[in-house]
């Protein structure tokens, strides 16, 4: 007689199931990683094969970290990622909570809300570029009209270092709140009923129910939504490249924009590789911390 426990004893079995995945990921993931390590240890500029090769050791990393652009990009990337994910999370959670009510026309609302996330990021960038275009942009036009009523100047959406980043954050929020909403909405609609009934009997306040029952039960969904969004927001490129190209000045030069400038404008493969590894470590640590926070505090999730 076979039991699942029996299968479990054959320790190769899970590896067999995981084999294809691991093989593909190794094939596609390992070489780039190793090659980046190699690149970062030398001084290869792709457009200048005639420059003498030198072993750089850790020099590339050191140069990057001491570059004033590094702190600038760190600050911008952190601001972008944290604010975008923060707003997306709360807006998505709020919407998801609203959807727990019985509402007439729910699926129409839901469909509308999901639209931005389905559109390719490059097209989202182009759409907002159009909406924010001088004179002919829909948003530019109406905000200018409204501002004029209050005697204010037009809003410099993309053209002022103080506001360009906020505009980019808004566009990210516009596109990705639906994702947060979707995951949390799905999580919410699958919560078990018993704890709520118990709370009902206890007469707990609505906020307390939310804090002590809903949030903890939602943890798995929140973890997935937050990890994926944080990782992706950190690496956002398409929309920024189309809307501001890192400008004005370098006010929106996130790590990924800087990386692209190093890799594809300066063609400095080594410097770019070093930067990408630094970015990798940052994302790695971030995700690790997330997972630790979420699993350590919830015994239910430790399997």
């Amino acid at each position: 007689m076979k039991t699942i426990v029996g299968i479990q004893h054959r320790s190769f079995f899970p590896w067999l199931l995981m084999g294809p995945t691991l093989a593909i990921l190794l094939a596609v993931g390992l070489f780039p990683f190793g090659y980046s390590l190699y690149l970062a240890s030398t001084n290869i500029v792709l457009s200048k094969p005639y420059l003498p090769r030198v072993f750089m050791g850790l020099q590339q990393y050191q140069d990057l970290v001491t570059d004033p652009d590094f702190l600038n990009s760190l600050k911008i990337t952190a601001t972008f990622t944290i604010s975008a994910v923060f707003v997306e999370f709360w807006a998505g959670l709020g919407l998801a909570l609203l959807f727990k009510r019985t509402i007439v026309g729910k699926s129409v609302y839901r469909l509308g809300i999901l639209i931005p996330m389905v559109i390719p990021p490059v097209v989202v960038g182009l759409i907002w570029k159009y909406l924010l275009y001088p004179h002919s942009g829909l948003v530019t036009y109406f905000t200018t009209q409204v501002a004029a009523i209050f005697g204010l100047p037009p809003v410099p959406f993309l053209s002022s270092p103080q506001t360009a980043l906020a505009t980019l954050i808004f566009v990210d929020v516009w596109q990705w709140t639906p994702f947060m909403f979707l995951i949390l909405h799905a999580g919410l609609s699958s919560l078990p009923n018993e704890p709520y009934e118990a709370a009902d009997i206890d007469g707990a306040s609505r906020f307390r129910v939310f804090r002590t029952i809903t949030l903890p039960l939602l943890k798995q969904s929140i973890l997935i939504a937050l990890i994926i969004r944080t990782m992706d927001a950190f690496r956002t490129y398409d929309t920024i490249a189309i809307l501001t190209q890192g400008g004005p000045g370098n006010a929106t030069q996130t790590f990924n924009v800087w990386l692209t400038n190093l890799g594809f404008i300066a063609f400095d493969a080594s410097r770019a590789a070093a930067l990408s590894l630094i970015m990798f470590v940052i994302i790695l640590v971030m995700s690790f911390v997330f997972i630790q926070i979420f699993t350590k505090t919830d015994p239910l999730l430790e399997r």
Binding site: T21, L22, L25, V28, G29, F31, P32, F33, Y35, S36, L39, L46, I227, M231, R235, Y237, F255, N256, L259, T260, G263, F264, A269, A272, A273, L275, S276, M279, F280, I283, L284, S287, F288, I291
Partner: peptide, 17 residues
């Protein structure tokens, strides 16, 4: 966790390799 790390390299960085 290692599987997840494969999603962490920025696309621009791995294009060359």
């Amino acid at each position: 966790f290692w599987i997840l790390t494969n999603r962490m390299m920025p696309a621009v960085a791995v294009i060359l390799p």
